[in-house]
Simulated assay, not measured.
Amino acid sequence: MNKKLLSLFFVLIFLVIVLAACDGGSGKTSGDSEEPITLRLAENQPEDYPTTIGAKEFARLVEEKTNGRYKIEVYAGGQLGEEKSVIEQVQLGSIDLTRVNAVPLAEFSEDIGVLSMPYLFEDEEQKWKKLNGEVGQELLSTFEGSNLVGLAFYDSGERSFYNSVRPIKTPEDMEGLKLRVQNSEIAIDIVEALGASATPMEYGEVYSAIQTGVIDGGENNLPSYYTANHYEVAKYFTDNGYQGVPEVLLASQQLWDSLSDKDKKAFREAALESVPVQREAWAELVKKSRKTVKENGSKIIKVDDITPWREAVQPIYDKYGDKYGEWIDKLTK
Rank of each mutant, 00 (worst) to 15 (best):
N296Y: 13
I53E: 03
E273Y: 02
H230S: 08
Y162M: 12
L19T: 02
T212I: 13
Q243V: 10
L8N: 06
S184W: 01
F153K: 04
L140T: 08
W128C: 03
P308N: 10
Q79A: 12
Y119G: 04
A198L: 09
G77Q: 06
P171Q: 14
R268T: 14
R60Y: 05
K302Y: 11
K127C: 02
G93C: 12
N2C: 01
L41F: 08
K127H: 02
P118W: 07
W327Q: 07
F58Q: 12
P167L: 14
V293L: 06
D96R: 12
E158L: 12
K178T: 02
S30E: 11
K264G: 07
Q182K: 13
R279F: 03
E144F: 00
V165I: 15
Q91I: 15
L259P: 04
S109Q: 04
F58H: 10
F121S: 01
A106I: 11
G81N: 05
L41E: 05
E35M: 08
A234G: 09
Y70C: 04
S252W: 03
S141G: 09
E63Q: 13
D23W: 01
E247N: 12
S258W: 04
G218T: 07
L331K: 08
R180Y: 05
G244S: 15
K323T: 15
L249Y: 02
K302C: 01
S289K: 06
L12D: 02
L140Q: 03
I112Q: 05
H230G: 00
D189Y: 01
Y119A: 05
I186E: 04
N132Y: 00
E192S: 14
Y203L: 13
Y324Q: 06
L139K: 06
E144D: 13
E73K: 13
V206L: 14
L92Y: 05
V275T: 14
D123C: 03
E311Q: 15
L8R: 09
A55F: 00
L148R: 03
G176P: 00
G27P: 08
L19N: 09
S289I: 01
L6N: 07
K169A: 13
T51W: 04
T66P: 04
T38C: 01
V303P: 02
R180D: 02
V165F: 04
R166H: 13
E43S: 14
P200S: 10
L140S: 07
A312L: 07
E63N: 14
S224C: 05
G133H: 06
Q314T: 13
L12G: 08
I168L: 14
K319A: 11
Y320E: 10
N229V: 00
A234W: 13
I316E: 11
E284F: 05
K56A: 10
